[in-house]
Design a protein around this nucleic acid. Sequence first.
DNA 1: GTGATAATTAGAATAATTCTAATTCCAAGC
DNA 2: GCTTGGAATTAGAATTATTCTAATTATCAC
Lengths: 146, 146
Amino acid sequence: MSSPIENHAALCERLKACDVRPTPQREVVLKVILEKRDHPTADEVFARVKASMPTISLATVYNCLETLVQCGIVRQVNLERAPTRYCPNLHEHAHFHDETTGQIHDVDLPPELMTRLHEVLPAGFNANVIELTFRGKAASSPHGTN
Amino acid sequence: MSSPIENHAALCERLKACDVRPTPQREVVLKVILEKRDHPTADEVFARVKASMPTISLATVYNCLETLVQCGIVRQVNLERAPTRYCPNLHEHAHFHDETTGQIHDVDLPPELMTRLHEVLPAGFNANVIELTFRGKAASSPHGTN
DNA sequence: GTGATAATTAGAATAATTCTAATTCCAAGC
DNA sequence: GCTTGGAATTAGAATTATTCTAATTATCAC
């Protein structure tokens, strides 16, 4: 967007703006994420980073990514580092993930909204599953199913 | 819903209706999921199942759960058994997960729709993150960012 | 400069999931 | 009715994703 391949100084600035130390590891992790704007996994980032910094460890890549996520420089696509959960409610519904208690509540979706959601997809995209998750805090423990 | 605690015959019927053999392992896994309609992890299901079948293995619980999901008897909440992905696009947007190629495409969301999404939450629920993922097939490789 | 303190790194450990060899089940042939 | 072949299912072992923590590096006060 701004610059095609950001240089050292620009990357430094970006990190310092978030009050994090611009370490070489963080710079190179941020660099590879901005260079190729796909949605890499931590392991893919690790592979790309090793090209210019062969001694880095995967754990450090995880650390750097977490820092960048906290800074708001990158987003996690599945921000769910937790095990898969199973649910016998087959109605079309969304989930509310309570960050305080860790509980998951079902949220009913009006059918009209589902239609609307299908409409936002550009031509050529055909979704058979729509997954909608809200994350936040619930005012005390309300009443619903968890 | 139908019966509070389903009995052996009812569970059998439910499995046979899906053309899967009603094995003891599958029955007991289905039973614990229906008994306590929370959103257990595979490990939690494992723990509950062991009470009545101490010899079962965690791998079998995974197998049974997968079968039940394929039958449409239960749903996976994070149907993403893949590593977390990272994304430098900070605009409010959804993701389209192409089941054919495995690629992830960004989908723009009209601001009006985001407002609408916040409205479906019952009073007392406050979401700071909304995660919306579509899964399906895209007609050839369209053009968008992946 | 030097030492105390905090931040960061990366090897080792853990947790979640999948692979595959062994077992069980069923049906057809004898 | 028993036996054999083949498919389905199970579960131990292996793999993959993530986190923990000891060691290192950097920063600040003196």
